[in-house]
Amino acid sequence: MTNPMIELLSEKGTLLADGATGTNLFNMGLMSGDAPELWNTEEPHKIKALYSGAVEAGSDLFLTNSFGANAARLKLHDAEKRVHELARVSAEIARDVADTAGRRVIVAGSVGPTGEIMEPVGTLRHSLAVEMFHEAADGLKSGGADIGWLETISAPEEYRAAAEGFALAGLDWAGTMSFDTAGRTMMGLTSADMVKMVGDLGDQAPLAFGANCGTGASDLLRTVLGFATQSPDRPVIAKGNAGIPKYVDGHIHYDGTPELMADYAVMARACGATIIGGCCGTQPEHLRQMREALDTRTMTEPPSLEEIADRLGAFSSQSDGTGEGAAPARRSARRRRAAS
């Protein structure tokens, strides 16, 4: 059977994913240091509002509030025995929102990193990591998620362990990594390395792969261009931050405007991504303009690095991590629109 996400992607050509989870929950009153996943049972109406905000803004796909639903992270909140429950409930609330949307919307079960360093660099064993990912994936599947969604991964060992966990749960999945260290992941992978790794996973490979979070929309698009040069055989995901984080009055604020994110969405599609959303800082107002831009604007050729920097802001590093191509400095000229 074809996965619902792939069916909808085949029908529409491009899918708009959702925006931030943390940013929007903090706006609802979540305090720094609290576990967002506990709100699935303590504040379910707020989690429903989070999901509904994305759907009402036009998202075709949204992620569940389960990023930190694994034993290692929840142990910090004395909730390590509630992984399956909290993952399941996050998906059940999402299923209800999707099923009453009046159109087809995909529920993607968010799975984040364990927060531990895997062997041989760290102490987390492969078998234990697989067990943690399997527990989360099984909970998400029980709650009705259409697909698992691995995100913000840095280490290839952890990506492979998650692939095995999803396979054990019998849940199709998509998976992104964060290229936030001079064009590489924190553990040193380049965009080309990721394409090869995904291809080597065989029957356990994700249905789609890509990049999320990182240091800003410009860097993320450069990574997507790197994927494209490898001619990947599966859909590419782009889920970039809404600008660059800055401290304002003691809180983190992302400076990306809805107009900037609309330009980013159109450019991401031109770079080769077909599943496009936002990460940190991306709110419903950003998504609404991204939806409109994807529906009404075109860009027929991939943008150059200079064009990306001119419209979305300077790159954080001179290289994309592969040693090819230097990023241009920030332009003083007024930012142009990605398409008319």
Rank of each mutant, 00 (worst) to 15 (best):
Q204D: 15
G202W: 12
G183C: 03
E43F: 06
R73F: 12
A91Q: 10
G68L: 00
T21P: 12
L25D: 08
V83P: 00
S10K: 15
L86M: 04
D193H: 08
S178G: 07
S218H: 07
G102F: 09
D310F: 11
G226V: 03
P113W: 13
T185V: 04
D18H: 03
M5W: 09
R291M: 05
F209D: 04
T257I: 08
N212V: 03
A217Q: 05
R269F: 07
R104I: 08
M299H: 14
A163S: 12
V97S: 02
M132V: 03
M187S: 13
G278H: 06
S32L: 11
T21W: 15
G256C: 00
A57G: 03
L140G: 09
D138M: 10
K48A: 15
A79R: 03
L260V: 15
M187Q: 13
R95T: 14
H134T: 15
V105S: 00
G29E: 05
T152S: 01
G313S: 02
V97C: 02
D219R: 04
E307V: 03
A71V: 14
W149N: 12
C280Q: 07
T300M: 13
A91V: 11
L9M: 04
G53H: 07
S90F: 04
G202I: 10
V107N: 02
A72D: 12
L171G: 01
A136Q: 15
L86E: 08
Y264A: 08
A314T: 03
S340M: 14
T296N: 01
G148V: 01
L221I: 15
G175L: 06
L8S: 09
R291G: 01
E164T: 09
M186C: 06
F67I: 02
R95V: 10
S218N: 05
K75A: 15
A242H: 12
N241K: 01
Y254F: 15
G214C: 05
A205V: 10
K246D: 08
G175E: 11
G281Q: 01
T282N: 06
I106S: 00
G277P: 04
R336G: 15
H126S: 10
A329T: 10
Y264Q: 07
H45F: 13
R331Q: 13
R334Y: 14
Y159V: 02
T257W: 05
A326H: 12
M261R: 07
A205C: 04
F166W: 14
V236H: 09
F315Q: 05
Y51D: 11
M290Q: 06
